[in-house]
Design a protein around this nucleic acid. Structure first.
Lengths: 115, 115
DNA sequence: TTGCTAAAGTTCCAAAATGGAACGTGAAAG
DNA sequence: CTTTCACGTTCCATTTTGGAACTTTAGCAA
């Protein structure tokens, strides 16, 4: 089954997944809620390759979840900000966060200092 | 970046995505909440191939979200049911549902009768 | 005016994941 | 015997992804 077909699914969960049903998109949105808005910031914070990042941002913009706006004229620099539609995704992200906090503890036992 | 690395991410959203961050896993969970529990039911309702379905179910069981139990002795038949950990994913699924209902309307204009 | 840096992408290719269909298994039913 | 059912597994071609290098536009420094 292809992505496109899922868009017409009777189930709203399935349709939602056509936009955020992959490994990186939700991490980009998380960054947006944390106040980040630039390509380089997303690249660094999410760990997604620039390649994938570019395609995900395109999709988020084309679906009206993010808006791409100019923040510097010369040279042209763009930033991505949440639209109202995007902001309304907050409850889902919070639910993921809460569930993860409770049920997905970080394995790595003690220390955060390298080893 | 690999899946495994995301498991140790500081962010609970990222860690949650290591389990449900793909196209099909959430649809399987949706089915579980709708009362389905069998391999064939998931295959039919989600549209995932049996191949992928088997691997996703394995992951959901290994992460303690679903439990695989025998419901028929001979021949051996198994079913998958939500654990407490799995049931607590409900808020996330509901958030996806609500967002999808509001922001991802089904495109196909009228008729449901084929064309 | 040559060189370095920065932001935002794009391009290329090998590696990994996925889709689809066929096959395997154990047991009941016709 | 032959089908059917439920639950997977296997195989291979197609897609998607990861990673690194490259591109473009322009400011700033030497």
């Amino acid at each position: 089954m292809k992505w496109a077909e899922l868009e017409e699914n009777w189930c709203p969960v399935a349709r939602t997944l056509t936009v955020v049903g992959d490994r990186w998109t939700l991490l980009i949105l998380r960054d947006c809620f944390l106040g980040y808005s630039k390509f380089e910031e997303f690249a660094e914070n999410t760990g997604a390759t620039r390649h994938i990042l570019a395609s995900r941002l395109k999709r988020l913009v084309s679906t009206g979840i993010l808006e791409r706006t100019l923040y510097n004229e010369r040279p042209k620099r763009y930033q991505y900000v949440l639209t109202e539609k995007g902001k309304e995704f907050a409850p889902a992200l919070l639910a993921f966060r809460d569930w993860g906090k409770k049920h997905m503890p970080v394995r790595r036992s003690v220390s955060a200092t390298k080893e």
